[in-house]
Every structure is written in C-alpha cells, then in structure tokens.
C-alpha cells in the first residue's frame, strides 16, 4: 500500500511509526519527506481507525475500500493474515509500536516508544493455535533475538481471535 503524497506519508509515519518512508532506511527527522509504504496489516489498522482512506484501481477507476473489503484482500494475499492482524491490532491497542521483524527472523518487533527512541525488547512470532511447528524454528528465532538482547514471544491466536502470549527466556539449567 502506498501513500504517494510525501507530506502525508511523513505525517502518518511519525504518528506512531507506521510503514516505511521510501528510500529512507532510518528516518531521523520529521522534516524528511517521502512516499510511505504500508503493509496491508498497517493499512487496515489505520483504515479501521479512520486515519486513512484506501483506494484500489478497478475497471471503472479508483474505488474506495471499506475495512471489510481490505480485510478480505488480506485474507486472500497474506498467509496467516487473520492471526497476524489480530496480534498487530492487540499490541497496538496496548500502546506498543509494532514494526516488522524480518531482520530478526520473526513477524514483529515490539517497541514501547518506537525505533530510534528505545530498543525493541521483544520479537513476536505469530501462530494459529491449530498450527504445528518444527521446534528448531523457535531456536533460530530465539538465538537471533538473544544475540541482540531481545526476547522471543510467541503469540498464539485461537479460532475466536483470543491471543495467548508466551515468553521464551533463554535458560541455563
């Protein structure tokens, strides 16, 4: 999802660190202006909050999407979208800044204040309660996060979108 207006893009980014400013790896100043790239998950959250309008290109031109329509698109295009969105929304509602965790092999990095302000203490991996996982995946994430002094949380979403958070702390017997 693109917010093409650089002024608007920058404003949305600095509201609470949503998305990525195009070509700016680590934005440092609010005066930096660039189009904003948002994930479907971030865009849906902002759309639900009435902080964004989302348009899709259709045969008859641009169509404004409802949150339900964008949610359906997410379900079609993103694996585990339901679970990922439930966790993203829950953590945002709890006041955290939630960023993608790709660099650390997990789904999200969670900040109390935001990148550049504080150190993200947690990496979060999202699962559906019906999923199975190779336990070594937990070790891979855990070790990578531990090497940068972060802890791993797995967030398990059940069929009613209730979330169980389980913290994995490295332990020496």
């Amino acid at each position: 999802m693109i917010v093409p207006d650089p002024v608007c893009g920058s404003e949305i980014y600095w509201t609470s660190f949503y998305g990525s400013l195009l070509g700016v790896e680590k934005p440092r100043s609010k005066s930096e202006r660039a189009p904003l790239e948002l994930s479907l998950i971030e865009a849906l959250y902002l759309l639900e909050k009435n902080l964004l309008n989302v348009y899709a290109q259709g045969e008859g031109g641009l169509t404004r999407l409802t949150p339900e329509q964008l949610y359906s698109i997410g379900l079609e295009r993103v694996n585990r979208f339901r679970e990922l969105y439930a966790v993203y929304k829950d953590l945002r509602e709890r006041g955290f800044v939630v960023r993608r965790g790709l660099k650390f092999g997990c789904d999200y990095l969670v900040y109390r204040h935001g990148p550049g302000i504080d150190h993200a203490p947690y990496g979060v991996q999202v699962y559906s309660v019906d999923e199975s996982t190779d336990p070594i995946e937990i070790v891979r994430m855990g070790r990578l996060l531990h090497s940068v002094r972060k802890k791993l949380i797995i967030a398990v979403v059940d069929s009613g979108s209730r979330i169980n958070y389980l913290l994995f702390g490295w332990w020496k017997p």
Binding site: V139, L166, L167, W170, W171, P173
Partner: peptide
Amino acid sequence: IVSLQGEITYYELARIEP
C-alpha cells in the same frame, strides 16, 4: 529443544499479558 546434532537449547516459558 534438541537439534539433530544433539545440541540442547533451554527456554523458560512464561505466560504474559504485554
């Protein structure tokens, strides 16, 4: 968690409410 090479990694679990 035991790897195929027999290396063990231990984690302490805690249920949390962020």
